[in-house]
């Protein structure tokens, strides 16, 4: 009797759950869908109306994308972002793992103190000026290193990973020690694989940071050839706005209106900045979910 009742409640909940999730998905998806539609729509139409779009408004066009891709640096900045993302995330993960492992060990005299020392920096920073001077004095201005080195470890991620490492049962570690394993082996053979889910999350956090990174590059880089994609896209966005008001590139898009393209380019830039990550993400998610699964089985 009780069992049946519960099933009804559960069923009702399941139905609610699915309906809720569907609504949520629509809510999350629609603005992006709107942007996609807008990017391919007729600029003259988009220009005048701000109503609801279900499908791109004909005549479809790709002129906005042409405008974005006429930029000479788009390919190099894309490669740069891949470089920053690859090298940066790898170094991030390596150092963060080391730090998180060390700081998650129990009974170490200094760990609590080091943790305080680190957490303090989340709240107090010297500010931009000394930070800039630091990079400058090290001779790193306008180098790839100036982008990667100052953000090797993110305290937030370190704390997240440390919490996960701390949750690995001590018994496993102890038995490994009896087998003669040292800390290095324990980290990479036991703790790291067992926390795979969180490791995956933290990696993802870092990767997304690198994908979206523009502020530090905007301070430290001079050479456009070293710009990451987001900084360049930001420039395109602003540049198109500014130059179109000046009337300078009137001839660039022909006799149709330039102002219309202002909007269009904006939408196209969003698409360019978002599509690569959206396209790759589901593939990554497969591994990511697998990691979560492995973690759950072993944990």
């Amino acid at each position: 009797m009780a069992a049946i009742k519960r099933t009804i409640g559960e069923r009702a909940f399941a139905v609610f759950n699915y309906v809720f999730m569907t609504v949520l998905c629509i809510l999350c998806l629609y603005p992006m869908w709107y942007v996609f539609c807008a990017a391919f729509s007729d600029p003259a139409y988009m220009y005048g109306s701000r109503g609801i779009l279900i499908w791109p408004y004909a005549p479809y066009n790709v002129k906005g994308f042409q405008l974005v891709f006429t930029n000479d640096y788009i390919i190099s900045s894309f490669l740069n972002t891949l470089f920053y993302l690859g090298v940066g995330t790898f170094l991030n993960m390596f150092l963060t793992t080391l730090g998180a492992y060390s700081l998650s060990r129990q009974n170490c005299y200094w760990n609590g103190k080091i943790m305080k020392f680190i957490a303090f920096t989340m709240y107090f920073q010297g500010g931009l000026i000394p930070f800039y001077l630091m990079v400058k004095n090290m001779g790193l201005l306008d180098t790839y290193s100036s982008i990667i080195l100052p953000v090797l470890v993110s305290t937030w991620n370190l704390i997240v990973l440390r919490t996960a490492f701390g949750a690995v049962p001590v018994s496993l570690e102890e038995s490994a020690r009896l087998d003669g394993a040292n800390d290095w082996t324990i980290l990479w053979r036991i703790v790291f694989p067992l926390s795979q889910a969180t490791v995956a999350v933290v990696t993802l956090y870092y990767a997304v940071y690198w994908w979206n990174n523009w502020f530090n590059p905007s301070i430290f880089l001079q050479t456009k050839a070293k710009y990451p994609l987001q900084l360049l896209l930001r420039e395109i966005l602003l540049q198109n706005d500014a130059s179109m008001t000046s009337g300078a590139n009137m001839s660039m898009v022909g006799q149709e209106s330039i102002s219309q393209y202002k909007l269009l380019v904006k939408y196209c830039v969003i698409v360019v900045a978002t599509v690569p990550i959206l396209v790759t993400y589901p593939f990554l998610q497969k591994y990511f979910v697998k990691g979560v699964m492995i973690g759950s089985i072993k944990g």
């Binding site: 931009l128 000026i129 800039y132 590059p217 905007s218 301070i219 880089l221 001079q222 456009k224 900084l231 930001r234 420039e235 602003l238 540049q239 500014a242």
Partner: peptide, 14 residues
């Protein structure tokens, strides 16, 4: 010396 577009003021002040 070029400041990035949109960050001119930050760059100038810095």
């Amino acid at each position: 010396v070029y400041p990035p577009v949109g960050s001119e003021r930050d760059n100038f002040n810095l």
